[in-house]
Design a protein around this nucleic acid. Structure first.
Length: 150
DNA sequence: GCCAACGTTGGC
DNA sequence: GCCAACGTTGGC
């Protein structure tokens, strides 16, 4: 089992939206970054644990935990010409973009970016750098530290 | 709203 | 395959 951090803009889709969704689940669509795509396609597995992180908002923070309930599938929006996520180079035979399905687990007392940056025990997490990855791995050690901290 | 950091594109 | 120009992300 592995641990991940997924970024989302709460104005677009927040952890509360996830909690309110049917089956408290959602297909995590719209990832259009190759490094993030590769993680989703190759490494994110059912039962992996996911930190939900709110970005581009007043207080950027890890706000809760979700669990992966379905491994990577083609993101249907890449084929939808009316979608912002449409990609003319993607084909049904070889989809370029994928998404996974996650289910809400629980809220956490928000672990703010400021707190993470100030925590000298957290050294590997890509958030520490000016990293714009929307899907990033979290080591088991740092996951446990963050859970205990928050 | 600004802007630094970084990813992507495209000409050569 | 290099790299400049451009676009996007995301914290502040």
């Amino acid at each position: 089992m592995a641990y991940w951090l997924f970024k989302t803009e709460p104005d677009a889709f927040s952890i509360d939206d996830l909690k309110k969704a049917p089956q408290q689940s959602t297909f995590w669509e719209g990832i259009r970054n190759y490094q993030a795509r590769n993680f989703l396609r190759d490494q994110v597995k059912v039962s992996d644990q996911v930190f939900i992180y709110h970005s581009s908002c007043k207080t950027p923070a890890i706000v809760g935990v979700a669990i992966v309930t379905h491994a990577a599938e083609a993101d249907p929006y890449q084929f939808d010409m009316s979608s912002d996520y449409y990609d003319a180079k993607a084909t049904l035979e070889s989809p370029r973009w994928v998404g996974v399905t996650i289910q809400y687990q629980r809220h956490l007392k928000p672990i703010t970016l400021a707190a993470i940056k100030a925590n000298n025990d957290i050294t590997e997490l890509a958030l520490k750098k000016a990293n714009r990855l929307s899907i990033m791995p979290v080591s088991e050690r740092e996951w446990d530290l963050l859970i205990a901290h928050g």
